[in-house]
Simulated assay, not measured.
Amino acid sequence: MPQATPLLRLLNLLLTPGMRTRTDPDAVFDGILAEVQRGRVPLTDADLAAVDGLRLLLADHAANPDLSGLGWMSTQDQIRDRLRNRAVVRDAQATRPGVREEPVTAPVFVVGLPRTGTTLTYHLIARHPGNRGPKLWEMTNLGLPLPAAERAKVIEKTRKRFATVGKVSPAWAHLHPLVAESEEEDFMLRAHTEMFATWGPAPRYLEWVKGADLTEDYRFLRDALQVIAAGEAPDRWVLKHPMDLWRLPEILRAFPDARFVWTHRAPSAAVASGCSMAEATQVMYTKPGRIDLDRIGQEWLEISAGGVERAMTLREQLPADAVVDVVYDDLVAEPETVLRGVFDRLDLDWTPVDAATLAAATDRTGHTPHRYTLERYGLDETQVAKAFAGYEIPASTLS
């Protein structure tokens, strides 16, 4: 069970005075917006409209009576990162206009609920020679490519920043280790995702993002990738985020030649894992003893089941070869066979580098499995099966 560490309790105590600003979240948002634009090209009205949903997100968390001092600071930091991304990219485009012409060819999006094999699949495709995914240090320090010495300093700063996260919430670090030089999820570049609800209750934001058209958000993702690799474009970008699963048409409007790799697993494991992730996150954002586990269960079940249902409907609108399916049980049983098949569908040759990457990724020496159950979050197998009644996992392709 995730618990508040002594360091977390100390940080919450020290940050309590800063909680006073919650009374005027609009003023806080406007202050952050002015801060990130200072010394840069001002954001356009279109840019401001694209990020304005984050104002609602900030207000939702400000209204949470159980929000902790660290939670309020972290909420602001996360929103600051997204607004800064927008300002940095627009400034880079203004000072180096050619960056808009950087190629982003046939990107691959690995989509699927948590604990369905997305990370293994993502790393194998992203680390194929010529491919790459955006690294954690790049997304949290967005900008044009840096000289080697300066890049090393930024990477080290990123390591220290996320090492602190591990000390504050060891459960989160175990669930999803944040490694500075490793590929991370694309929502760290974009503005909007239901994932923000893992910080704590955000009902108005969730309702807003559920009905939002995020095409522009994915167009901005393209812009950000062009800035990250200006002059060093890979053969193929590879991206990953669970909530990309129900945004396929929006992604295709931004990346018309995108391909998708959809990982499938029995929903109960994915839902329980998602709940566990939300709990581990809320330990950092919520006052001790105030986490509502049943709320987490109901909210994550609705997000997951509703998203998969939407994804299945949207898939029917896509070209037949746009999506490559991966069955989790097959991936666990015969990872090389399955991944070779994925590579073949993506027109990628299997190389010794890929074999070595797979061997390293599947080496579980010293690994302690994370335990989670539906019952902890007020759910059971029957509820999950009913919610996912229309979802059919593809048949095994193994003989």
Rank of each mutant, 00 (worst) to 15 (best):
I291Q: 04
M284N: 04
M139D: 12
T95G: 07
A233D: 10
R253I: 02
G390I: 05
R364C: 02
D217R: 04
D47G: 12
T337E: 08
A224H: 13
A254P: 11
T373V: 01
L175S: 07
P234K: 11
T281K: 00
R132D: 08
E156A: 11
Y205M: 04
Q317E: 13
T193G: 02
V28A: 14
G39Q: 05
D235W: 06
K153S: 14
A171D: 11
M284P: 03
L358N: 08
V308Q: 09
H264T: 07
L57D: 07
A385F: 02
A387Y: 00
G390V: 00
L221A: 06
G341N: 02
N85H: 15
L54G: 14
T357A: 13
P25R: 13
V104R: 02
A34Y: 13
R290N: 10
R82P: 08
T193C: 01
R151P: 05
A224C: 12
D244C: 15
L33G: 02
A163M: 02
V323T: 12
F29H: 03
T193Y: 00
P319C: 03
L124H: 10
R376G: 06
E375F: 00
Y218I: 12
I32L: 15
P203E: 03
T23C: 12
R159F: 01
T373I: 01
T286C: 05
E336T: 00
P352V: 04
N141T: 10
H367S: 10
